[in-house]
Amino acid sequence: MRGRRERVQGRLPLVLLLPALLGLAFLLVPLAGLLAQAPWATLPSRLFSADVGQALRLSLLCASAATVICLLLGVPLAWLLARAELPGRGLIRALVTVPLVLPPVVGGVALLLVLGRRGLIGERLDLWFGFSLPFTTAAVIVAEAFVAMPFLVISVEGALRAADPRYEEAAATLGAGRWLTFRRVTLPSIAPGIVAGAVLCWARALGEFGATITFAGNLPGRTTTMPLAVYLALETDPDVAVVLSVVLLAVSVVVLACLRERWISGLR
């Protein structure tokens, strides 16, 4: 295995290598700029302020909860798109990706129009149960899930289409029901796709700003996630904003690296 990989790398053509390195630099140089600007001397004292801890905890909690929701709803949706005989499937698939192109702030307004206090569904919730979703932590999770779900759906659908359907057919001929086949054959075969999708989804949710601040507002301890704290810090003290961004970056890199190490390599 290892020998084959090295041989492939040795033959990497310059035509690919050059743009690849350029691409890598394009992605990393702005981050390096951020790190170079960070006020390292005062970083520890700023890091351990209560506000930062609170925002970070809320960010991690909401991004994780949003990812769980996306998994519960997104994997079945991806299965539907990839496997079921649906009329107008192309259109549905295009619609699923709409939150990707929608400016997040518009997404937030759309959520308000449906789930807000005067919204189509939100008005009923308020009337019948006295419950209003905006300005709550739950609203942060809803906003993040709305924006992040397409990443998961697209990734899982891709995995499903790439998976060999003959295994599922074989399971069916051996007498397994559709649910059993899905659980024992389909899911394991697309697990790497699900993990990759979940990772993308989590990362997108963690950095979510526009939909969150529009739909959930901004109140420390309840709805102020790290990106919101960064944005507001930028208004007064760009140094603090840089510190917060570095913290968010560091935490996400650590989490993603650990996940990849444990899950993806374990699956190969």
Binding site: F135, T223, E235
Partner: peptide
């Protein structure tokens, strides 16, 4: 004040 949101 008892705000529900501090807008940007």
């Amino acid at each position: 004040p008892q705000p529900d949101s501090l807008e940007q």
